[in-house]
Amino acid sequence: MSDIEIKDNPDIKSELQTPPEPGYSEWRKDENTLYNDGLPEEEKDWFCDARPQKARKSVQVIENFLNWARSQSLWILAFGTGCGAIELRPLVTSRYDISRLGMQPRPTPRQANLIMIGGYVSIKTLKRIVRSYEQMQGPKFVVAVCSCAINGGMYWDSYNTVKRIDEYIPVDVYVTGCMPRPEAVLAGFNKLKELIKAGKAEGQNLYIERFDWYKENQKKVIKDWNMPDYNW
C-alpha cells in the first residue's frame, strides 16, 4: 500500500488552468510569424510561417444552427495508433453502423472534422498526430479512445510513450477502457454531439489560444522537430 504514491503534480494542473503568459518564445519571430527553426534553410520558403489566428464565430442563432449541422455530419479521421484502432472497424459494419448517425470515415485530414486517437501514442506517432491535427480545417474535434491515451495505461513506465495526449492537442471526449467496446465509442460520439450542439467543443480555438503552451509541450518530447511550427 505504501509503495503506491499518489502523484499530485500541482504545476501541471495550474498550467492547464491558467492561460500562458504573453511574451515571445525563442521560436517565434514576432506576434504573427513563426520561425520554422526545425526546417533546413532551403526548405523554409516552401512552408507557410504565419501564426494561426482564432476563428470568428457567426451570430449566435446561426452558430447554433451550424453547430447542429456539424454534429449531424461528423467525418472521422481514424488515427489508429494502438489496439483501439481495432474497435473502430466494427463501427462501420452493419451491427453498429455509424453512418446512420451521419458519420463516415474520411481518409484525408483535410476533409475530416474529428480525429480519433486510437490508443497509446509514441513519440514518432505524436509527430504525425500533431501534423494531421493541424492540417484539419475548421471546428475540429478530438476523441481519444483507450486508457493509454488518457494516462499511459499499461505503458505508464515506457520510455517512448506520452502519458497524456491532452498536453499536446486539445481533447474533447475521452473514452475509457482497455479497449472500449464499440458501444462505448458510440456513447463517446453521442457525448461529443451534445458538446458540439451546446457550443462547448471549441478545441480549435483553445489550441490557438494556448498555442505557445501546446508547442512547448510538443517540442519538449519531439526532439527532432523537422516540420514547420504550424502545418498549414
Binding site: K57, L66, A69, S73, R100, G102, Q137, G138, P139, Q204
Partner: peptide, 18 residues
C-alpha cells in the same frame, strides 16, 4: 444507412467550416 437528407447536411457542414 444515413438519412436521405444527409447530402444536404454535409453541404451545410462543409460550407460552415471556419
Amino acid at each position: 444507412g444515413p438519412p436521405v437528407w444527409q447530402p444536404f447536411l454535409d453541404i451545410i457542414k462543409n460550407n460552415s467550416i471556419r
